[in-house]
Design a protein around this nucleic acid. Structure first.
Lengths: 342, 342
DNA sequence: GCAACTATGGCAACCGGTTGCCAAACCTTG
DNA sequence: CAAGGTTTGGCAACCGGTTGCCATAGTTGC
C-alpha cells in the first residue's frame, strides 16, 4: 500500500471544463447566483454535486483575507474550567459556521505571543482566555486583529468577565450567617483579574459583617496547590476557607480528609466556578456557580460582532456568579475560640 | 472608535521593495537559505524582522497544499474523556509545530460527514475519535485524506485503540477474589467498539471463573444514564457492577447513595477510563485507568507519520489499561444469596 | 429599424506566497 | 585570456478561488 494516492480533489476548473463554461462562471454560480442564468447555474450545480466538488477554503481565504476560523487560546487545557469554556466557544463558533482553532499557551506570556503571531494570518480573530499578556501587548494585538479577552479588563479591548464579586458577597454572608467569624482566602495566580476582584469583595463584606479574613497565596490554580494550601490554612485560626477556584477547593478537601479533619463540621469550604466534579466530590462542594460555558459562547459572539464591524462601540460584558450551597459548609464549630477580632 | 483600521500586515513584496530585491529572493531567504547570498539574506532577514513581517500561512498553504493544521473530531466535547484526549492531541500537534482544529460532531454521523467535508481542504489530516461513521464511510474518507481513528478498528485505516480487555480481565478477577459471584455490566453506546470488546472480555473471564454476568444497556455514556442504570442494576440480583465508563459509574454511585445503598459494602462498582474526578468522587472509584492523553498523543503522532508517507505500512496501535483499586469495591456481602449459577 | 438597455458569460488580474528555469556575474583553471 | 563551471537573483507561472471590467447577444421602446 506504499504511497497513498490522494486523488486530487476536483476544482472549480474541473467543473467548468465539464460544463463548457469559464471557471469564473462556476464561481459565480455559487457566490453570486443572480449573476448567472438559472439554467446554466443548475447545470453547474448538478455537475459540481456529481463530481463531489468542495470549494477549497484556503483558496477562498486568500483573496478575501477571511478564513472563517477563530483562534481560542487558553493558558492550560488541563484545567477543567477551560473545558466548559472551550465547549461554549466551540458551540457558538459552529453555530455561526466558523471553525475553532485551539491552542494551549502553557501559562506563558511568550508562548502566547508566539502563538498569536503564528496564527494571526490564519484566523479572523482571537478569543484569549485568562490571557497572560500584559495590557500593552494585548492592546497591540488588538490593533492587529479582532480580539476578545475573557476575564481581563483592558479597554478598549472588548472583554467578557465572570464577575464573582456578587457571588463572593453571598458566600461570605452565607458563612457569616452560619456563625463563622474567621475565614481564610486561598488566592489564585498573582496576575489574575478575577482573583483580585474576589479578594477585594471578600474583604469588603467581611469588614462590614465584622469577620476577620486572611489571605493565603498566591497559589497555582490546581488540586496539588490546594493540597498544600490546606496545611497553610490549618496554621491559621479559621473555621472556613474560600478558595480561588474549585480545583484548589478539591485539593483542600482531599488534604483535610487525609489529616482527619471533618468538612464541614470542623472547617467549611467554599469553592468557585462549579466545574465538573464539584457536585460529586466528597463532600459535595458549596461553590460559586459560574456561567463558564456562557462566557465562552459570549466571547465568540462578541468576536463575531467585531468581525462585521457593523457592531456599535462595545463594552465589557459582565456575567454574574451565584452561590450554590452543597455539603462542604455548615455551622461554625462552637468548641473553637471565636472571639470577634476587628 | 468606529471602524477598526487593521493596518495591513507587511508581505514578502513589501520586504522585497525595501531591500531592493525580488520577492522570490525574500521567499528563498526563508525557505532555501543556501540559494541566496549570505549577506543578502542577512539584510533581508533584518528588514523583515524590523518590519514585523510574518509569512502568511494561507498563502503558503495554497501552492503546497499543506496547512500544517490537523483536525480533531470528537463526538461530544462535554465528555471529560475527550478533554484528556484533546489535551494529548494538542500537545503532540504543538510539539510538531502543527495547529489543531477542534470540532464537535454531536454524536451524529451526518454532522461528522459534513465537518469532514468542510474541513478537508483546510487541514492536512484528521484524527477521528470514537467516530460515528460507518466503516465504508471511514474508508472513503481515508482515501481522500490522511486519517487516524481512535477506538475503531477499520483496516486499512490506522487506528489507536485503548484496549480494556486486559484491564477488564483484571477487574473481574479482582471482583471474583473478593467473593462476588453475580455481576452486572452497564453497557455503553451500541456502536462502540470498546463496549463490544469489554463485554466480550468480561463474559469470557466470568465464564472461566464461574461467575454469572448480566448485561444492562445499551446506555448513553453519561452521568444521567448511570443514575437511571443504577435502578436497573438493583432489579438484578448482583453484588457488583462494571460500567462502560466512569461517567456511568459516577451516576451509579450517586443513585445508590440516594437510595441509601452502601458502596462498596452492599454493591461494588468498577468504572472505566479514570477520568478527572474518578479519584475524588465518593467513594473514590475503582476503575480501569486508560492512557487517554497518550492515546491523543499517539493518534497525532501516527497521523504525522502518515503525512510524510515515508512511514512503513502501519498497523493499529493498542494501548493497554490497568486496574486502579480505590474504595468503590470490597468483599461481597455475605448476607446476600450467593449460590453459583452457571 | 435603430438606439439604449439588460442579462449573461469570459478574460484577466489579484490574493501572497513557492519554485522551475534562465541569465548575468563571478570564479576557476589551463 | 578564453572556456567552462558555479553563484546568485530575477521572471513568470502556479496554487484555486474571486471580482472588475468588457463583449456579446438578446430585449425593449419609440
Amino acid at each position: 500500500m506504499a504511497a497513498r494516492d490522494q486523488q486530487r480533489a476536483p476544482t472549480i476548473h474541473d467543473v467548468a471544463a465539464r460544463c463548457g463554461v469559464a471557471a469564473s462562471t462556476v464561481s459565480r454560480a455559487f457566490s453570486r447566483p443572480e449573476r448567472v442564468n438559472a439554467a446554466t447555474r443548475q447545470r453547474i450545480l448538478d455537475t459540481a454535486e456529481q463530481m463531489g466538488y468542495q470549494p477549497n477554503p484556503i483558496a477562498r481565504a486568500l483573496p478575501s483575507g477571511r478564513t472563517r476560523t477563530l483562534g481560542l487560546l487558553v493558558p492550560d487545557i488541563t484545567n477543567p474550567f477551560f473545558l466548559d469554556l472551550i465547549r461554549g466557544a466551540e458551540r457558538a463558533a459552529a453555530t455561526a459556521g466558523y471553525t475553532l482553532v485551539l491552542a494551549d499557551t502553557e501559562e506563558s506570556s511568550d508562548t502566547e505571543t508566539t502563538v498569536v503571531d503564528r496564527l494571526a494570518g490564519a484566523v479572523d480573530g482571537f478569543v484569549l482566555a485568562s490571557s497572560r499578556l500584559s495590557d500593552s501587548r494585548l492592546r497591540a494585538a488588538y490593533a492587529r486583529k479582532p480580539l476578545v479577552v475573557v476575564n481581563r479588563r483592558v479597554p478598549p479591548v472588548p472583554g467578557v468577565l465572570i464577575d464573582s464579586a456578587q457571588g463572593t458577597r453571598q458566600a461570605v454572608e452565607h458563612l457569616a450567617s452560619l456563625g463563622h467569624r474567621r475565614i481564610a482566602y486561598l488566592a489564585g495566580p498573582r496576575a489574575s483579574w478575577s482573583d483580585a476582584r474576589r479578594w477585594r469583595a471578600l474583604q469588603t463584606v467581611a469588614r462590614r459583617r465584622g469577620l476577620h479574613a486572611v489571605r493565603i497565596g498566591p497559589l497555582a490554580p490546581t488540586v496539588d496547590a490546594g493540597v498544600a494550601g490546606a496545611d497553610a490554612v490549618l496554621l491559621e485560626d479559621v473555621t472556613a476557607v474560600v478558595t480561588f477556584n474549585d480545583l484548589l477547593a478539591i485539593g483542600v478537601l482531599r488534604r483535610l480528609r487525609a489529616r482527619g479533619i471533618d468538612v464541614p463540621h470542623q472547617i467549611s469550604v467554599v469553592g468557585c466556578d462549579d466545574i465538573f466534579g464539584a457536585d460529586f466530590c466528597h463532600p459535595p462542594l458549596t461553590t460559586l456557580t459560574a456561567p463558564i460555558e456562557a462566557a465562552g459562547r459570549t466571547a465568540v459572539d462578541q468576536l463575531l460582532g467585531l468581525l462585521d464591524n457593523s457592531a456599535a462601540p462595545r463594552r465589557d460584558i459582565v456575567l454574574p456568579t451565584r452561590l450554590t450551597i452543597r455539603d462542604s459548609t455548615s455551622e461554625a464549630p462552637t468548641r473553637l475560640r471565636q472571639e470577634v477580632t476587628g
